[in-house]
Design a binder for these strands. Structure first.
Length: 607
RNA sequence: GCUAGAGUAGCGCAGUCGGUAGCGCAACUGAUUCGUAAUCAGUAGGUCGAGGGUUCAAGUCCCUUCUCUAGCUCCA
């Protein structure tokens, strides 16, 4: 049997055992919904009269083991729709599932023993005995909405780890443990890169070391964008409500925006407005809002003057700070924050230019991701039901995107999410995994037919007629914050040389070697290398320990010998060996080269 | 927002049955001047996330609230 099938069979069967255990523990009034397998096990969704907590995990596991030891037979039966409805008449979720299946669908049910039955396609084991060697453990409990809809029932979801053997379960738990050590929320503050503080939830403080890295990423982004003829702008961080009314954000996004209420003395709050079912009455004519996106300002920058078709594409990039208010419980370290910068761009193109422009964007993405050695997965999201604009334009745009994706990743080399595009246009998202295997959207390329329309943007075409440009929104890092979070976990805090806050750390052995240390520091600095030195009277082991903690790529120790011979002794990050007797000039040269080439790995030797 | 968990010195943690808050590292002072990840000695550091309640007495029990973590939903 293939491993996949094996896992599926066992994990899915264990889910049934979990449901049976929960019912035996908490009574017949338990409502059980669905229990699929997932990457590291399975889960099952329930309505349980009591809240399940970590204290209950052991009881659940024990009950499951007890059930397995009964060695009950699993029997499968085909059943009519009517009989199924009768059988599950007390189970509201099962009833809904049955009703949603096509009339002629053959229904199967599985009995585990004779007192537990579940609606299920199967297949399953034939006797609980087959599951006795399977290793499982309750992982966690969380709330989950029935059918993923927050307006419907809130269920208790119990997650299990399930593996074919104890060893594999153990290995998996160890992997999780190691992943936690890569956690950027631990590494970041430990290396003095960034921190969070209660008075500004979801908004990072960038500390001196982290800010150096941040600036380095910006520098890299600018370097590439210059090469591709992007022009950088910067625009107001807060804008009057009028702008958001035009862009549509007030109607579609106001719940995610930080408002700056009007405070002009004597101004009546006359301008109340219904958004959904909420009445915003605090507004005055001078109500402002922090920008959650850069697009409206970019539209205004374009609109300041008339444009000829000869000017297009026009690429306005910007790195301004944006704010998005999130519901509590949604924040997650740097992965999900309320204040961040994107490597954002709005490109204004003619319809004919869409394809070439997107090819160029993808080539930029490939270049950038390759520099970091991270891999990504592309997702294509197409026209949703509530789309706006001309369906012909949509079709053309989707066809163009699809052609690019097929060409680039091959058919089936990317995921298609039908109907998942934005109401204003289709999009391509680039997803990257974190240490725990969770995927985060980083890069995004979105076509927009709506904003140019709302802002009445035009260009004058060859024949003298005024036409509407298409806007491409794109970001490669996505948000700098999220990307740095991803990189931190990817590199476990040992970043590539070129982006490290400090690239070389200097350790003079005794105070009399400080003079030589200053000379080395000056030389490196003059060559554009970020260098830090510890010229205190601490002993060298302490100095080395501190710089190891910061994961500086090169720790250079210098004593009598080095000062006399004008050389350096290099302790390379990740290795206990030293590279000795390297002439100072040769070392500087090597550092400059690594910066220029943005080398991923550190050298084992410097000849 | 929902479910569960967590919050004690800068960091990592201990604190039993409710009885005056402790350890290690880091910091500071002094000694040590050292060849590749923890030299020695001393000193200082806390409104126990915040607010309220119970009690003679609360880090500990109860309520409210904030922040963080995992997951759900939503998103870059």
């Amino acid at each position: 049997m293939e491993r996949e099938e094996f896992l599926s069979l066992y994990r899915h069967s264990i889910a049934h055992v979990l449901a049976k255990a929960v019912i035996e523990l908490y009574g017949k009034e338990v409502q059980y919904a669905i229990g699929p397998q997932i990457e590291d096990g399975c889960y099952y969704d329930f309505v349980i009269p009591k809240a399940v907590t970590t204290d209950d995990f052991k009881a659940i596991e024990d009950k499951m083991r007890e059930i397995l030891r009964r060695k009950e037979d699993w029997t499968c039966k085909e059943i009519s729709r009517a009989d199924a409805l009768e059988l599950f008449k007390d189970q509201k979720f099962k009833t809904e599932l049955i009703r949603d299946l096509p009339e002629d669908e053959k229904l199967t049910i599985y009995y585990t023993g004779d007192d537990y039955v579940d609606l299920c396609r199967g297949p399953h084991v034939t006797n609980s005995q087959d599951l006795l060697n399977v290793a499982f453990q309750v992982k966690s409990v969380s709330s989950a909405y029935w059918r993923g809809d927050e307006k419907r029932d809130s269920l208790q979801r119990i997650y299990l780890y399930v593996f074919p053997s104890k060893d594999e379960l153990k290995a998996h738990l160890k992997w999780i443990q190691e992943a936690l050590e890569r956690d950027h929320k631990k590494i970041g503050p430990a290396q003095d890169l960034f921190m969070f503080q209660e008075t500004a939830p979801g908004m990072a403080y960038w500390l001196p070391r982290g800010w150096k890295m941040y600036q380095e990423l910006l520098r890299y982004s600018r370097e590439i964008q210059d090469r591709h003829n992007y022009e950088e702008i910067s625009a107001p961080l807060i804008n009057n409500k009028k702008l958001w009314l035009i862009s549509g954000h007030w109607a579609h996004y106001v719940n995610n925006m930080f408002l700056v209420p009007g405070v002009t003395e004597g101004t009546e709050a006359t301008d109340s407005m219904m958004v959904g079912e909420k009445n915003y009455s605090i507004e005055t004519p001078d109500t402002m809002a922090a920008k959650p996106m850069n697009c409206p300002n970019a539209m205004m920058a374009y609109k300041r003057t008339v444009h000829s078709y000869k000017e297009l594409p026009i690429r306005y990039s910007e790195f301004d700070v944006i704010h998005r208010k999130e519901k509590s419980g949604q924040m997650n370290g740097l992965f999900r924050v309320q204040e961040f910068r994107q490597d954002d761009d709005h490109t204004f193109v003619t319809e004919e230019q869409i394809k070439d422009e997107i090819l160029d964007i993808i080539s930029i993405a490939d270049e950038i991701y390759k520099t970091f050695g991270v891999t990504y997965r592309a997702e294509f999201s197409t026209r949703p039901d509530d789309f706006m604009g001309d369906i012909e334009v949509w079709n053309k745009a989707e066809a163009a995107l699809k052609e690019i994706l097929d060409q680039k990743y091959g058919e089936g080399g990317y995921e298609i999410n039908e109907g998942d595009g934005a109401f204003y246009g289709p999009k391509i998202d680039l997803q990257i995994k974190d240490a725990l295997g969770r995927e985060w959207q980083c890069g995004t390329v979105q076509l927009d037919f709506q904003l140019p329309h709302n802002f009445e943007l035009t260009y004058q075409d060859k024949d003298g007629s005024m036409k509407e440009p298409v806007v491409i929104h794109r970001a490669i890092f996505g948000s700098l914050e999220r990307f740095i979070g991803i990189l931190t976990e990817h590199f476990k805090g040992a970043y590539p040389f070129w982006m490290c806050p400090y690239q070389v750390a200097l350790v003079p052995i005794r105070e009399e070697h400080n003079e030589y240390a200053h000379k080395v520091a000056d030389k490196l600095q003059a060559a554009g290398i970020r260098v830090e030195a510890d010229c205190t009277d601490a002993n060298m082991k302490e100095k080395i320990k501190k710089f190891k903690m910061y994961k500086d790529p090169f720790i250079v120790v210098m004593g009598d010998k080095e000062a006399a011979e004008n050389t350096v002794s290099i302790n390379v990050r990740g290795s206990n060996k030293q590279i000795q007797n390297v002439p100072l000039d040769r070392f500087v040269e090597e550092c400059v080269k690594m910066n220029k080439e943005r080398t991923l790995d550190l050298p084992e030797a410097i000849d």
